[in-house]
């Protein structure tokens, strides 16, 4: 491939996108409360853009519904994500995007935990530690360059 800006992984495996969630009669019934479930959380993060490909995290299989755990009653969310290659330099950035998306989209009562699927990345612990550290996340978002990349990941694709 010609061109200066080489991609780390130019021809990744593509996974199928799940369709939009079917709206059921129950969803439209005013009186029945809908609990926040795994699929709803997955829908929040599946369309996040990958920082280097014009593909969503779902299409790259970075996030999967089975790796999302939510407990509405206890107000906790845990998301595991899997970088496409073990040395992916974008892992922290992807984790940060997921975390920011969830912080912006979930009620404040939730405790959000984002980490790498065990055994899928070379510097798993370091990345997990950064993502779990509230102050470091806040500091990262003060950095306008980082914020720009995160916002790009979170923008609706045109």
């Amino acid at each position: 491939m010609v061109g200066g800006n080489q991609l780390e992984n130019a021809n990744p495996l593509i996974y199928q996108r799940s369709g939009d969630r079917q709206v059921t009669a129950q969803d439209e019934d005013e009186d029945i409360p809908d609990k926040i479930d795994d699929r709803e959380i997955f829908d929040l993060i599946r369309s996040i853009n990958d920082p280097e490909h014009p593909l969503s995290l779902e299409e790259l299989n970075v996030v999967e519904q089975v790796r999302v755990k939510v407990n509405d009653g206890e107000s906790t969310v845990a998301v595991e994500f899997t970088p496409t290659i073990p040395h992916c330099s974008m892992a922290t950035l992807i984790g940060l995007s997921i975390k920011v998306k969830l912080l912006r989209s979930l009620p404040e009562r939730f405790k959000v935990d984002v980490h790498i699927t065990p055994g899928t990345h070379a510097s798993e612990h370091a990345v997990n530690k950064q993502l779990a550290d509230k102050e470091r996340v806040a500091a990262a978002l003060e950095n306008s360059h980082l914020l720009e990349v995160v916002n790009q990941c979170l923008s609706a694709r045109s």
Binding site: I36, E40, D43, L44, K101, R104, S105, S144, H145, L147, E148, V149, V150, N151, Q152, L154, S155
Partner: peptide, 19 residues
């Protein structure tokens, strides 16, 4: 909630770099 998420996400991006 779905609409709220969409709206709030968009408002967050306003005037923010990269949007």
């Amino acid at each position: 909630r779905k609409e709220a998420v969409a709206a709030r996400g968009e408002w967050f991006l306003l005037g923010s770099p990269g949007s």
